[in-house]
């Protein structure tokens, strides 16, 4: 479903992704862990095309995302190509990034209405259904400013789902939440995986959640995958010393 091929990303002189190879199968749930600055969030940001890459290529659903074929050669994608491919991906952000001037329902209707071209009735029905699913059916007319962090993040999940993406990206979606609100968000994500079989990439610090929910864990270090495999192996008996060091540091803090 998603394939990174020798992807390089630099910020100035700093190499953030250093020839990254990563393949994610349809329906697979991949958790990405690693110390800050290891490039894990960048993986999601380049996949969402929020930032261009400096080398390599990313494929989504069998088609090149960052490039397009022209006269038999691959050239960097233009805005039109990006718009066609980007629709297959949805993203949920650490700080929710809801639109503050729209109600929860309007947040979820906006893109289906104006990007997918749904009728108002269809968009409303879809948005209302999704808000119901994330347990916020009664908050549809609330503005983001009046919602708790956990509620805002659930609206953000519903908003991303309303575009019917094939791949969902979760970027530290519980990091900005008070501890008691983390559970409600994780529960929604769990249901998405179990009932809908969505392909998911998540950057997370919730080791316990990654262990029971992800199919595979990738440990990032210095712009590469240092170690990957089933959660029970990576999170319980890691081989790489950096992974061990990281896990003990994280578990200590909990």
């Amino acid at each position: 479903m998603v394939k990174f091929d020798a992807v390089v990303k630099r910020y100035g002189g700093l190499v953030v992704l250093d020839g990254l190879d990563l393949e994610v199968a349809a329906g697979e749930r991949v958790a990405i862990i690693g110390p800050s600055g290891s490039g894990k969030t960048t993986v999601l940001r380049v996949l969402m095309t929020l930032e261009p890459i400096d080398g390599g290529i990313i494929h989504v659903d069998g088609e090149p995302l960052t490039h397009m074929a022209r006269n038999g050669r691959l050239v960097p994608a233009d805005e039109r190509h990006l718009r066609r491919l980007r629709g297959r991906i949805g993203m949920v952000f650490q700080h929710f990034n809801l639109f503050p001037h729209m109600t929860a329902l309007e947040n979820c209707m906006e893109a289906p209405l104006h990007v997918l071209g749904l009728s108002r009735a269809e968009a409303r029905e879809r948005a209302a259904g999704l808000l119901e699913m994330v347990g916020l059916g009664d908050k549809r007319d609330a503005y983001p400013g009046a919602l708790s962090g956990g509620q805002q993040q659930r609206v953000a999940i519903a908003r991303a789902l309303a575009m019917r993406p094939k791949v969902m990206l979760f970027d530290e979606v519980t990091s900005a939440l008070d501890p008691e609100l983390v559970g409600e968000v994780l529960q929604v994500i769990r249901r998405l995986g179990e009932e809908h079989g969505l392909t998911m990439l998540m950057v997370t610090h919730q080791i316990a959640f990654a262990r029971e929910f992800a199919h595979r864990v990738c440990f990032f270090d210095a712009g590469r995958i240092a170690e990957q495999g089933p959660p029970d192996r990576i999170l319980v008996e890691p081989e790489h010393p950096r992974t061990r060091q990281f896990l003990s540091a994280v578990l200590e803090s909990h």
Partner: peptide
């Protein structure tokens, strides 16, 4: 972040400006 959220919802530039950025 507001621009990025709109890109993630696949909104084209003119729509982002008109519906998300300008009202704020």
């Amino acid at each position: 972040a507001q621009h990025e959220a709109a890109i993630a919802l696949n909104m084209p530039p003119a729509l982002r400006m008109r519906r998300i950025i300008l009202p704020q």
